[in-house]
């Protein structure tokens, strides 16, 4: 049962139609906890992107070998392996980033979005579409994290990418974890509004 979508559609699907954070509302914990700045969001997003693509491709490659009754342990093992690989590589080659991110990179093992994509997509589809789906989902997550990080950094510390742009701190509240929920909620509403807006316009 191969999907009939093209690679571009698969990527766009991950970023817009099934955006992990704004549409599927999965992996909310990192979205709320870590996205206090654009850089944090970008770094975690990149790590997730790699883990998602590698895991999707691995599971898709091995889908005939994996016994269907024990697929969950195999998924976990696959994700854990790639997280470890990325964790070790980050520690070795990007020590400055790792000092900040280290503790969160390990948590990627438990991100719902990755397991969910393996279960829903990669274990049924050919390698090529799994790759594009993983890329789309990873990019979707990264875009979501960066957008939330942008809003929170701008409103919370008055800066973008660490550069002071406003000169003052509008609302310190946005740096705190609980503000993450507000930003995610507002973004969700915004995404839905755009979607309905275009759907309405198409009808006319």
């Amino acid at each position: 049962m191969a999907t009939d979508k093209s690679s571009l559609q698969l990527v766009a699907n991950g970023i817009l139609k099934e955006n992990p954070i704004f549409k599927l509302a999965l992996s909310m914990c990192p979205a709320v906890g870590i996205s206090t700045t654009v850089i944090n969001g970008l770094m975690l997003g990149t790590a997730v992107l790699f883990v998602q693509v590698f895991s999707s491709v691995t599971i898709s490659l091995l889908k005939n070998f994996i016994h269907p009754r024990i697929r969950i342990p195999t998924y976990t093992l696959t994700i854990a392996t790639w997280v470890t690989v990325i964790d070790l590589s980050l520690a070795a080659y990007f020590p400055a980033a790792y000092a900040k991110m280290g503790i969160f990179v390990k948590i990627i093992v438990a991100f719902a979005i990755i397991t969910m994509r393996l279960e829903m997509f990669a274990c049924k589809e050919p390698v090529k579409s799994s790759f594009w789906d993983g890329l789309g989902m990873g990019l979707g997550f990264m875009v979501g994290m960066v957008v939330i990080g942008f809003v929170r950094e701008l409103l919370g510390s008055g800066a973008i990418l660490g550069y002071d742009v406003l000169g003052f701190k509008p609302l310190l509240f946005f740096i705190l974890p609980s503000a993450g929920f507000f930003v995610v909620g507002l973004m969700m509403g915004f995404f839905n509004w755009i979607e309905t807006y275009y759907a309405e316009r198409k009808k006319r």
Partner: peptide, 19 residues
């Protein structure tokens, strides 16, 4: 099941060890 899980673990272990 045992065989396939073991092989998966061995592959995973090799990848992690090499890294």
């Amino acid at each position: 099941i045992i065989f396939r899980l073991t092989v998966s673990c061995l592959i995973a272990g090799t990848i992690m060890g090499t890294t």
